[in-house]
Each structure stands twice: as C-alpha cells, then as structure tokens.
C-alpha cells in the first residue's frame, strides 16, 4: 500500500513540477503572477486530446507542436498584453495588482473559449494504457512515460538555466532587474522569454497530464492553485524548491486521496499551504527576507 502511494505520487509529481517551474519562472523573472496558468495547462491537455482523437497523433509527438505554440502565444501575450502593464506600473506593488487582475481576466477568456468549444463535459483518451510493474506493483505505462518526459524536460531546464550564457542572464534578471540592465542584459526581452518559457513548461505538463487524467474545461483553477502553493512552498523563484515541493504536494495529495477521500485533494493542498505560511513563509529553499 505504502509503496503504491509513494510511487504513484512520484509519477504524479513530475507533471506538477513542470507546471510549478513554469510559474516560478514567470513570477521570479517576469514578475507576473500568472493566475491563468491552469488554463494554459488545460488548453494543452485539450490540444493533445484533439490531435489524438482527430488525427491519431500521440501526445508525445504532439508535444513538439503544442509546446512551441504555447511559447509563441505566450510571448505575444506578454508582449502585447502584459508589458504595457509593466511600463505603466510605478512600483512593484502596482504591477502585482495589475498583473493579478489582467491574468485573472485572461483566465476567464481562455476558460470561456474552452467552454464554448468543449462544453462542461469531462474528457479523456486512452494512450499507452497498459500496466507496467514497478517495485512489485503495477502502474499505467502512460504515467511512467509522462514522468520520464517530465524528468528529461526538468533536467534540460536546469542545465539551460545554470550552464548556458542566456540562462545566466535570466537568473540575473531574477535577482535584480535593474543591475541586470546595467550589465547589458536586455531585461524586457529576458522577461518575455521567461514568461513564454514558463507557459511552454506548463503546456508540456498539461499534455503529459492529459495522457492519464480525466479533465474538463473548468478545472484550471485547481491546478493553478496547486502550482501556486508549490511555488510558495518551494521558495519563490527557485526551481529546485519547486521540484521538491511538487513531490511533497503530490505525496500528500495521493495519501489523502487513498486514505481519506479523493474529493479532498484541494483541502490537502491548502493544509500544506497553511503549514508553510505558519512555519516557513519564505519557502523550503528560500532565505528569510
């Protein structure tokens, strides 16, 4: 029983980690708290669903299409919708309020578009739905594959941020946008790139989740909430913290779903959130401000 829960939560945590890393990039670098993140996730899930059912393109292949598309769309969103707010804001607090409101509006626009297209029904499709045995228990192959892809993408991101020149520039903007500008880093461009990359990661998580999850058009809020809490629990702006927190959250959620009631997963999420706020508001990896 315990091994099942443990393995299942690790497999689930992969997709959560991608989404949370996306969000932490957006908030840490672009300084935008993206409340529409869950809608990006669901959008990608629906994209994979459509490609699979209409054109028989598997979700792993469709990643090649969906992730760059999410990158491009969100680059445009940042460029046309959010950067005017960045320029208008007199200080960080004002930008926070404005970006919350703008992405909150965006949430309803994207959700509305999905509701108009798909209605409120639940969707799922069957891909790689055969059992594999791990540690003596059987799990869906789709979950294992999704975790493998998530781990690869996360590793790629880690090396990209820490071992490349542009990755270093992005981290510099996260630390101090003004100082980054002084050393000839194009800050608006780096912010747009980080925002778009964050959404691309989220979209990747969405496509992977769609392989084994039943979803509908208005589920985005719950995922945004999970990702936000993972980001805070991990320490804002720290991808390593996001990964650890993602697995913790997946573990608590799987435990609650298995031992108490599957309808209480959000309550489990909030419990972790409140504990974080009470005992370690700066997050697991964050330093005290």
């Amino acid at each position: 029983m315990l091994t099942t829960i443990l393995v299942a939560s690790v497999l689930l945590g992969g997709a959560y980690a991608l989404m949370a890393m996306g969000l932490t990039l957006q908030y840490g670098v672009a300084r935008i708290m993206n409340l529409a993140s869950g809608e990006t996730l669901m959008g990608a899930a629906f994209g994979s669903f459509c490609l699979f059912t209409a054109l028989q393109i598997g979700p792993l292949l469709s990643l090649v299409l969906i992730v760059p598309l999410a990158f491009a769309i969100n680059w445009a969103i940042y460029r046309w919708l959010l950067s005017p707010l960045v320029r208008r804001a007199k200080n960080q607090g004002m930008l926070e309020v404005d970006s919350i409101l703008a992405t909150f509006g965006l949430l309803f626009v994207i959700e509305g578009a999905m509701l108009a297209g798909f209605g409120g029904n639940y969707y799922s499709y069957s891909f790689l739905a055969q059992p594999v045995t791990l540690l003596g228990h059987s799990f869906g192959l789709n979950r294992v594959v999704a975790f493998g892809v998530a781990a690869l993408v996360a590793l790629g991101l880690y090396f990209g941020l820490n071992r490349t020149r542009y990755g270093t520039a992005i981290r510099a903007v996260a630390v101090d946008p003004v100082a980054a500008g002084l050393v000839a880093i194009d800050v608006p461009r780096a912010a747009a790139f980080a925002f778009a990359l964050g959404s691309a990661l989220t979209a990747c998580g969405g496509s992977l989740l769609s392989m084994f999850l039943t979803f509908n058009a208005s589920m985005g809020v719950v995922f945004t909430m999970k990702a936000l809490i993972i980001v805070i629990m991990g320490g804002v702006g720290d991808p390593r913290g996001a990964v650890i927190a993602a697995f913790l959250l997946a573990l608590v959620e799987t435990l609650v779903a298995a031992l108490v009631d599957p309808g209480l997963t959000l309550a489990a999420t909030y419990l972790l959130f409140v504990l974080t706020l009470l005992f370690r508001p700066q997050g697991l990896m964050g330093r005290r401000a």
Partner: peptide, 8 residues
C-alpha cells in the same frame, strides 16, 4: 465567460 473576461 469569454465575453466577460474580455470586458474585464
């Protein structure tokens, strides 16, 4: 939903 989001 969509239209209200746009109004917002």
């Amino acid at each position: 939903h969509l239209l209200l989001g746009l109004v917002f």
